[in-house]
Design a protein around this nucleic acid. Structure first.
Lengths: 330, 330
DNA sequence: TTGAAAGCGCTAACAA
DNA sequence: TTGTTAGCGCTTTCAA
């Protein structure tokens, strides 16, 4: 016996009204006589009727779903972004379709294009150069972009990376560090801003950073980069890492090489992931408020889906969180 | 000017064929004369036609989407599960709708019921007692369950928690530990199995564990539980924690209390999250192969959607990963 | 206050 | 090889 799900027609028939009436009642677009409403209600209850969201979407063109694409769900920064976005979405009755591009921009376009027809809007955290993302606005769906788009005309949410980097570098300088290095991940859109912040703060003192490049925004890359930084001819007395993951890897490798943080070198990262506080020494970090970023992006997207005007760029500010991986230099 | 998207009818008209022909061609359910195929192709290209997945789903009843519900996306264990599941889904052309129940079972049912009509199947990682989840099979959608269902008749994927706990406890015993304690999280379905494994291994030596209960499966709960464990009258010489997060928190608090791990106490966790290796000392852990679990669950679900027979229970085995938080006792 | 009827964009028999 | 024709389950004028 095939158990068919009840349709609006079944309800209408059983309640002795038209499908139009049921539809309007269910969506509370119109009130009816209490007799009718009661009848419909009880039939719905009895039949266990639930409207078919597909059919509904087909007509209304709205799916109550949002596509969210991140670079790597395994990175706690992105996890927090997802958390924040998801929370807001849920509160508004939306569900999140997750796209993890796994740091491979190749599939990104394909995935998002396929997704675009199944969602009411998308939030995109991408590494692809803006100039190669013309297809995104062309999808003709409300979208929010993470970062500071210069070419793309899309509402965006961004952290203030340059200011964050400036702040932490300035702090390091104030604490007496003079040989500040930056371990970056040049492939990232944010890398330039962070480096600029470091440069800016140092330039005020007539200094410049040594710059190192990691091969990925991961702990492993941080580990690998360590020896070149610490065992070079002019080892720095402070290191600003592109993110906490790299900093964590660096910390581990430094210890294995026999260096002591922060005595030999102060280390800071970005993102303030929770695991920074469980490292030894606990990691000083620039908190970009990842979860708030995700929430802000979702809020913005929902507002724009709702037809509201949204400002072009929302900047979430950075906050320096001091822990034990930084110290004062004589 | 309203830019309308091309429908199958537009394509059919422009190519001088019927919509049925276009449909069959697009879905490659049938071949046509090369002249016709060429004409359709070029029209599709020209009009930028893409089939409307909603309309398609409404008819076929398949959405090419899978609902995946986890307890807390912020926990790296779940993150890895999502990663594994997502990878398999993507490879099969499915997208993942993420549901983060945030450890609050209240919304779970509501969220999943709403989701069930928009997905072809679901994977559920839940904390709700099985007896209260009758609604899940009632949703009448293929589903895969994480754990070992006894009441629910659902295909499942599970780690071998008891064996994992047995292994690590046995190892601790072999290394000379005699006062092994367990810091659990009784709300979890897995807690009982892990504790049973600890008990089993200890019983072989005529020993029994001291059992402590954490208030959440988080690092913070691990921190909080620390003092009661270390400063009690009979402090243990080894502690098995419910998961790595709790172990990490414990490690931190223990250090703050002036204890030394592993000299004063050996500590192990479950999940083998990547951040365990960045703690000091690096955390010994039972690797449950979270990512593989996610992948296995998705594979199983897709197979069952595909109409294949799937075995009731897939067990992913646990592997002990030794690091520096455990040692040998005299 | 209620209902009839025309679709939304597509697929799937079935015909030709 | 191609087309005709019913719908899928629902919303939405528009009329009663």
């Amino acid at each position: 016996m095939k158990k068919r799900v009840a349709t609006i027609r079944d309800v209408a028939a059983a309640a002795g009204v038209s499908t139009a009436t049921v539809s309007k009642f269910v969506n509370s677009t119109q009130r009816f006589s209490s007799a009718v409403e009661a009848r419909i209600s009880s039939v719905i209850e009895e039949l266990g009727y639930r409207s078919n969201p597909m059919a509904q979407s087909m007509i209304t063109g709205r799916t109550k779903a949002i596509g969210l694409s991140v670079l790597d769900i395994t990175n706690p920064h992105f996890t927090s972004v997802v958390k924040g976005a998801n929370r807001v979405a849920q509160a508004h009755g939306y569900t999140v379709l997750l796209v993890d591009t796994e740091e491979t921009p190749g599939r990104e376009r394909q995935l998002l294009e396929a997704l675009s027809r199944r969602v009411d809007g998308m939030i995109v955290y991408s590494r692809t150069p803006e100039e190669e993302m013309d297809w995104l606005p062309a999808l003709n769906r409300p979208a929010v972009y993470f970062g500071r788009p210069e070419y793309l005309k899309l509402p965006a949410v961004s952290s203030d990376d340059q200011l964050g980097a400036f702040m932490v570098t300035r702090h390091l300088a104030t604490q007496g560090h003079r040989r500040v290095a930056y371990l970056g991940f040049p492939n990232s859109r944010r890398d330039g801003e962070r480096l600029a912040g470091v440069r800016e703060a140092l330039a005020a003192l007539g200094l410049a950073p040594a710059v190192f490049a990691g091969e990925a925004p991961t702990a492993l890359a941080g580990e690998k980069a360590c020896s070149a930084i610490l065992l070079g001819r002019q080892p720095p007395d402070a290191l600003v890492c592109f993110n906490d993951l790299m900093a964590l890897g660096f910390l581990k490798a430094a210890r294995e090489l026999g260096f002591r943080v922060p005595d030999d070198i102060s280390v800071v990262g970005f993102d303030n992931i929770q695991f920074g506080s469980f490292a030894t020494p606990a990691l000083t970090s620039v908190d970009l408020q990842s979860e708030r970023m995700g929430a802000a992006a979702m809020q913005k997207l929902l507002a724009s889906i709702d037809g509201q005007e949204v400002e072009a760029l929302t900047v979430i500010d950075a906050q320096l969180v001091l822990r034990d991986s930084t110290t004062t230099r004589a």
